[in-house]
Design a binder for these strands. Structure first.
Lengths: 229, 229, 229, 229
DNA sequence: TATGAATGAGAATTCATTCAT
DNA sequence: GATGAATGAATTCTCATTCAT
C-alpha cells in the first residue's frame, strides 16, 4: 500500500515521514478509501466486506460509516476516485502535436497501458456496470470527473483530418469505444480467456505484441482511405 | 440443457398418464438453472440470492441445493451452460466458404450479435473473471465446452491467406481477442459509457453503425497489405 | 407463560402434556409471539430487543425472522394478537339481559377489569399510538379483529332506551370512549400518577373504590334524565 | 427553562456589544431542549435519536451531551419541562369563585383543552409510564413541579360541598383521575381509536361534543345526590 | 465554550446451508 | 425424490457516548 510505509508510531529521525497530523481525519479517510478500492476491485460490490476494508485501513467499520455513510456511499467514492485518477492521467498525456499518426498511437498506448497498470479500475467499472451505473448516476460529480476523454481524441482526429492523413467520416466517440474495447477486454476477461485459450493474456510480451497489432488496426482504419469492405 | 432431454425412460404407450416424475425433476432442475442464470447475470455471484432464484424457478431453496449442491455448484452450472450455448451457436454459424473477406465479416457479426443478444452471457463472464475463473477451472468440462471458437477463425484466416487476400502475420488468438473486445466492451460497459458519453451504447442504430466501422477496422487490418505504422 | 409449563422433554405420564409435534412449527411460532408480546409491552417497539425475545422464547433471533419477517411484522402480529384476545373476551361477556342498568355496570366492569388484567394490552396500544397506528393500518385483519366492541354497548343502550331507563341522546362510540378512558388512564399512567399523587394507582382496594365511583358516574349519566348543566 | 433567564451577568452599558456568549449558551440549551421534546414526543425515549435532536436544534450531538450529560438526563429535562408547563398553566386558570358547578366545568375544560393543545405532553407522559416513571422518580424537582393539580380541585370540591351543591363522599384524587382519563384517553389513543371506530377522535367538532357530554357526566356525578346504582 | 474525530457495543437483518422426516 | 423447519455465522448499519484539542 503506497504511502502507508512511512507511518511509524514514534517520530523517527527519518525526515521524509510526514508529521502525523492531530487526529488525522484526512489520512484516515484516505486509508479507508484506498482499502475499499482494493476490496471492491477484488470482490465486487456485493462481495466486498466492510470488516476487511476496516482491517486493511487499520481503522474500524464504524469509521467507514463515519466518513462514507454507507456501503453505497463508499463504493461511489471509490468509483469517483477511479474516474478522477483516469482524468488526471489523461490531463498529463503527452501527444506529439506534429504527427497525428504518432499521436494516435500514443493515445492508444496511454489508454491500454492505463488499463494494464490499473486492474482495479477495470474491476470497479465492471462492477458498476453490473449495477447499471447506479452509483455513477447518483454521483453529481460526473461532469467534473469525466474530463477530456473523448475531447482529446476528437482534437487529435480533427488535427489529422486537417492535415489530410485521417479519413473524415470517423465518429470520435465510436473510435474511442473501439480503442478502449481493444485494450479493455483482453485484460478484463483475462482469466476466462487464459483458461479458454490456454495462454496468459496479461503476460507482458504477449500483451505488447497484441498492442502493436491493435494499434496497427486502429491506425490503418483511421488513415484507411482505400478500404471498402 | 443440451443432452438432458434424452434421459426419459422410453415413453410408454399410455397417453393419459400424468407427466412423468422424471420429467418433472428435469423440468425443475432446468427452471432453477434458468432462474439462476438470470439472477447471477443481474446481480453477480455474491449478489445472487438463493431465495430469488427459488422464487423465479417456482421451486424452493431446498431444491437448489438438492440439484446443485452449493451456490458455487449452481454458478458453475450456469457458466457451463453459457459456454455450451455459445459453442452450439458457433457450430451453427454459416460462413461464406468462397469469400474469406465476407466470411470474416460474418464471423465478426456473429460474435457481436451474440453478445448483443445475450447480455447475460457478458455479465456471467464478467462475474467469473472477478472470481479469477475459479469456477471455470473447476469445471472439468472445459474442453468439451470451449469448442471451435478460435478454430473457426483460424481456418478462415488460413483460407484467406491461401487465397492471398489476408496478410500472413496475424495471430488467430489475438485477432479473436481483438474482434471480441471490439464488440464486448461497448455492451459490457454500456451503462458507464452511456452515462459518460451521454449516448445509449446499446441502441440499435448506433450499434449497427459502430459494427460497420468495427468490421471495416478488422477487415482493413487483416487484408491490410501495405500499412506499416 | 401458559402452555409452556407442560413442555417436558421425556413424555411423562402426565396426560395433559400435549405430545410435542415433530419439529413443532406452531409451538415455536407461538412461543416467539408470546415472548415478543412481553418484550414490546415492557420496552415499547423501539426499545424491544430481538435477542431478548429469542431468549425468552427459547429460540433464536433467526427464527423470529423466519416466522415474522421483520421487527415490524412481529409487532404487527403482537398487536393483532392483542386485539384478537380482547375480541374473544368481549364475545364471552355475559350481560344481564333483563336489567340494562346492571348490564351497563357489567360492561364497564368487564372493560376495566380487562385493562387491569392485561397491562401488556395497554402498553402495546400506547406504543402503537406512538407510531400513529401504522402497524394497525397495515394489518388487513382490522375488520376481523375489532369485533363487537361498540356493538355490544350500542345494543345495551338501545335496550335501556326502549325500556325508558336510559336517556336517548347518548352517542355509543363517545360513551365507549368515556368508559374506556375512565379505566384506561388510571392504569396506563399509573406510574406517573403514583409518583405525583403519592398513592399506588393499581392497588386493588383503591382501584375497586375508584371503579365503584366511575361506574356511578357512567350510570348516573346514562340514566341522568334531569341533569341539565 | 423557568428560572434560567436571570443568569446573565448584569448587562454592561456598552450597547454595541455582540449578543453575549451566556445568552447564546442559554439559547442553544433551550433549542436543544425544545428539539428533544419534539423528538421524544414523536418517537418515544428509545426511538428518540440524538442526531435528529441536534439537527433540529441547529446544534451538534456533542452539545446535547455538553448540556444534558446523557440521553436520560435530556429526557428528564424534557419531562420536567412538561410538568412545569402544566403547572404554570394550572396556576393561571381562572375558575368562577361564586359558582362551583361552573367552576368544575371550567376545571374539566382546562384539563382537556390542555391535553388537546399539548399532544407532546401526552406522548411524553406515556413514554415515561412505559419506563415506570424512572426519570420522574430521579428528578428531585417533583414537589416543585407537580404543583396545585389536585389542590385546585380539592378546593373547588370543598367549596361546592360547603355550599351544598356537591356530594360529600367524593375523593378528590380519584375525581381528578376520572376527569383526566375522560379527556386523556381519547387523545392519547386517537390513532388506534380512529382506525377502529372509523372516526377521527381529534376532530374539533367531535371533540367538543364529547367534552360537553363528559362534563355532563362529571357534573352530574359530583352533584349527584340521588343516584344510587 | 465549543467541536471534529473517534469508538465499543450492539442493533436488525441476511446468507448459505443442513436437519429430520 | 421431495420438503418444511431450523440455524450459525456473518453483514450492514446504528447508538449513545467519549476523546483530544
Amino acid at each position: 500500500m503506497p504511502g502507508a510505509s512511512g507511518r511509524t508510531r514514534t517520530a523517527s529521525a527519518v525526515p521524509e515521514a510526514p508529521p502525523r497530523r492531530r487526529r488525522d481525519a484526512e489520512a484516515t479517510r484516505a486509508r479507508i478509501l484506498k482499502a475499499a478500492a482494493v476490496e471492491f476491485a477484488q470482490h465486487g460490490f456485493a462481495g466486498g466486506r466492510g470488516d476487511r476494508i476496516a482491517q486493511r485501513a487499520r481503522s474500524s467499520e464504524r469509521m467507514v460509516y463515519y466518513y462514507f455513510g454507507s456501503k453505497d456511499g463508499l463504493f461511489r467514492a471509490v468509483l469517483e476516485g477511479a474516474y478522477a485518477s483516469l482524468r488526471d492521467a489523461e490531463r498529463a498525456v503527452q501527444l506529439d502535436p506534429d504527427d497525428p499518426v504518432r499521436a494516435l498511437e500514443q493515445f492508444c498506448r496511454f489508454v491500454w497501458r492505463y488499463y494494464a497498470d490499473h486492474p482495479g479500475f477495470i474491476s470497479v467499472l465492471n462492477t458498476e456496470n453490473l449495477h447499471r451505473a447506479r452509483h455513477l448516476r447518483k454521483s453529481g460529480r460526473l461532469d467534473e470527473l469525466v474530463g477530456p476523454v473523448v475531447g482529446l481524441l476528437s482534437q487529435l482526429l480533427a488535427d489529422g483530418q486537417a492535415r489530410g492523413v485521417f479519413r473524415r467520416d470517423v465518429d470520435p466517440a465510436d473510435l474511442y469505444v473501439a480503442i478502449a474495447g481493444l485494450g479493455y477486454f483482453r485484460l478484463s476477461n483475462r482469466h476466462t480467456l487464459s483458461a479458454v485459450l490456454g495462454r496468459d493474456m496479461a503476460e507482458p510480451e504477449g500483451l505488447e505484441r497484441y498492442w502493436v497489432e491493435a494499434a496497427r488496426m486502429v491506425s490503418g482504419y483511421v488513415r484507411g482511405d482505400r478500404d471498402r469492405l
